[in-house]
Design a protein around this nucleic acid. Structure first.
Lengths: 340, 340
DNA sequence: CTGTTAGCGCTTTCAC
DNA sequence: GTGAAAGCGCTAACAG
C-alpha cells in the first residue's frame, strides 16, 4: 500500500450510520427515495466522518471521470493562458476539473500528452493542434472514444469540431485599414509561417492588397530582435521602401516596434504599424499600437461549451467549425489619432 | 451506461493473448518475470487492440492517481501561468498530470476547489493560498491525507511546506537602490495591502527607509489608472513632493508609469520609478522600467519538486519554508542608464 | 514463469 | 423506503 488511504469509504459511512451501502449511495446522489430521517442521519454521519466519494470508484462503475483535458502549446503564453482560464471556468460550471498539458507545438509531445491523458479517461478533450494536418493526431482522436474539440486551429481532413478565429477576415480588415490610411507599400511580417493561423492571416493580407491593386511584400525572416533589425533595415533602405508594416503575430509586432524606435523612424508618419493579436501593453507603448484583437476568452469558452454539449448529447449535429470575429482596435501606430 | 466504455480492458487483452490477467498486468508494468516470447506476444496484442490501462481501476487498487492539483488565483495572470507551466513540467517528469483550478483569491472559492479536488484524490497539492491565515484552509489541509505545498504565500500557523520569494529583502534592496541614486522622498505605492507578499514588501521598504533615516511615505489608494492619477497628482503637488516611487506590484507600477507620462514628469530625472515584479514589456517601455525580478519558474519548479519529494518519502524532514532570492534588474526608470 | 482469486469503493439491479 | 449482492478494471498474494 503506497498511499495508505486515509479517506473513509461509503462502507464506513453505512456501517456507522447503521444503514446499507445503497442508502448512503442514494444520499450522496441527491437523496431521492430516502426517508427524511434517514437522509438527515446519514448526512450527519458523512459530515462527522468527513466522507468524500471517490471519483475513481465511480469512474470504474462506468460513470464519467468529471475531468476534461486541455492540450495547448504553452501555459505561459498569454493567449493560451487566457484560453485556459475560460475553459476552466466552463469546466467548473459543469462540475468538472481541467487537466492541462503542454506541447510546445511539437507533434510528438502532443501524441505523448494524448496517450498520458487517455489513461485517465477524460470525458472530453480540448486541443490546440500542434500541426493541423497531423495524420497521427487524426488517428488517435478517432480512437479515443470521447468527444474532442479543436481550438484555434482545425484538424484538417477530419470531422473534429473546431472553434477558431476568422484569421483571414481579420488580417484583411487590418490591411485594408492601413490602405485606407493611404499606405501603399505595406510589408507583411510573417515570422515562421507553418502555422494554420499565420497562413490564413497571410491570405487575408494578400486578398486586401490584391483587391487594392497593391503589391504584396512578404518577409518571413523575423524571429527575434536581431532578425527583425536586419530585415527592417534592409527593407527601409531598399529601392521601394515600405511605408507600413502589417505583422501577423505578437512577437513580430513587438520586435518591429522596437526596431522602428531604434532606427528613429516616425510611427505612423514615416511607417505605419498594425499587428494581429492584441497584448496587454499595446495601448501603453509610445506610440500605442493598433491591432486586430482576437476574442480569446470567447474562444476558450465556446470551445469548452461545445465540448460539454457534445457530452450531454444535447448537440444533435454540431457545426464542424465555429469562426469567431476579430475586432480592429485602432490606436496610434496605424495613423489613427488615439484619444489616449 | 452514460458513456459506453469503448476501451478494451486488461481482460480483453488476456483473453485474446491466451494468457492470464496477471501476465498482462506484469507486461504493462515493466514486463518482469515474463518470458521474452510471452512478453512480445502480449505487447503485440496490446498494440493491436490499442489497449490503455485505466487509471481509475489502478487507483481503486490503492495506487496513486498520478495527478497533482494546482490551486491558483488565476491562470491568465502571467505570474501564475508561468508558475503553472513550471509545475506542469515537473508533473510530467514524474509521470503525472496537472489539474488546475482558480480561486480569484477568494477563500470560499478556494475551499470549494479543494473539495472538488479531494474527490479526485490527487497525489499531492500545490496551492497559492488566497488567505494566509485561513482557519478553514488549515483544517481542510490537515484532513486531506496527501502532501500539500504552499506557493508564494505560506499558510500561517501550520507545518505546511512553502516555497516563497524573499519579498522583504527584495523590496529592501530595491528601495536601497533608489536611495543610492540620491532619492530622498520615496513614496511606496502599495495598492491593497492585505496580501502576505505585499505586506512583506512594505516591510522591506520601511526597513530600508528607516535605516537610511528617511521618512516612510505610504499610499494604498492606487487600484486603477484613475486612482493612480489622483494619488500621484496630489502627491506631486503637495508640500513635500516625492522624488521617487517604489511600487509593490506590477499593475501599480504600470499605472504609475502611465500617469507620470501623462503628467509629463521626467523619469528618472524628476521622479525615479522602481517596481516589484518584472513584466514582459518593462524593458520596452520608454523609459524602460527598473524592477525587482522574481524567479517565477523557479518557484513553480521547486514547489512541485518538493511535493514529489514528499510523495516519494525521499524527504525525511523537509524545510518548512524555502525562500528564493529576487534579482534587481536596473533599467532606465531608477536612474541607471540602461545599455538598452 | 504463469494463472486463480480476492477485493479496492462505488452504483445498480432486484428483492423485500 | 431499504438492503444484499454483483461487478466495473485492475493488482497482489498465493499456488503451482
Amino acid at each position: 500500500m503506497i498511499t495508505p488511504n486515509v479517506h473513509p469509504t461509503l462502507g464506513h459511512v453505512a456501517r456507522k450510520a447503521g444503514v446499507g451501502t445503497t442508502t448512503v449511495s442514494r444520499v450522496i446522489n441527491g437523496g431521492d427515495h430516502v426517508s427524511p430521517e434517514t437522509l438527515a442521519h446519514v448526512r450527519r454521519v458523512i459530515e462527522v466522518l468527513g466522507y468524500m466519494p471517490s471519483q475513481a470508484a465511480r469512474t470504474l462503475k462506468g460513470q464519467r471521470t468529471k475531468t476534461i483535458g486541455l492540450v495547448i502549446p504553452s501555459i505561459a503564453d498569454p493567449f493560451f493562458s487566457s484560453l485556459a482560464e475560460a475553459a476552466q471556468a466552463v469546466a467548473r460550471a459543469n462540475d468538472s476539473l481541467l487537466i492541462v498539458t503542454t506541447t510546445g507545438n511539437d507533434a510528438r509531445a502532443e501524441i505523448d500528452n494524448l496517450n498520458r491523458l487517455i489513461r485517465h479517461r477524460p470525458d472530453g478533450l480540448l486541443i490546440v493542434p500542434a500541426n493541423s494536418r497531423s495524420q497521427a493526431l487524426r488517428e488517435l482522436v478517432a480512437l479515443v472514444g470521447f468527444p474532442v474539440v479543436a481550438i484555434d486551429r482545425p484538424v484538417a481532413g477530419s470531422s473534429i469540431v473546431s472553434v477558431v478565429v476568422d484569421n483571414f477576415e481579420g488580417a484583411m480588415t487590418g490591411t485594408q485599414h492601413l490602405i485606407g490610411h493611404g499606405y501603399k507599400r505595406i510589408v507583411c511580417l510573417t515570422g515562421e509561417s507553418t502555422l494554420y493561423t499565420i497562413r490564413k492571416r497571410i491570405g487575408g493580407y494578400r486578398k486586401a492588397m490584391e483587391s487594392a491593386g497593391l503589391p504584396c511584400i512578404l518577409d518571413n525572416s523575423v524571429n527575434d530582435y536581431k532578425s527583425a533589425e536586419s530585415a527592417i533595415e534592409k527593407l527601409l533602405s531598399g529601392p521601394d521602401a515600405p511605408d507600413a508594416i502589417f505583422s501577423t503575430k505578437n512577437s513580430t509586432t513587438i520586435f518591429a516596434f522596437e526596431v522602428l524606435q531604434k532606427l528613429n523612424v516616425a510611427v505612423p508618419q514615416s511607417v505605419g504599424l498594425l499587428g494581429f493579436d492584441d497584448f496587454e501593453l499595446a495601448s501603453r507603448l509610445r506610440p500605442s499600437i493598433s491591432v486586430i484583437q482576437q476574442p480569446v476568452e470567447e474562444i476558450g469558452r465556446q470551445a469548452a461549451e461545445a465540448l460539454f454539449r457534445q457530452l450531454d448529447e444535447r448537440e444533435t449535429n454540431a457545426p464542424v467549425q465555429t469562426r469567431l470575429k476579430t475586432l480592429l482596435i485602432p490606436r496610434y501606430s496605424c495613423g489613427c489619432a488615439a484619444p489616449d
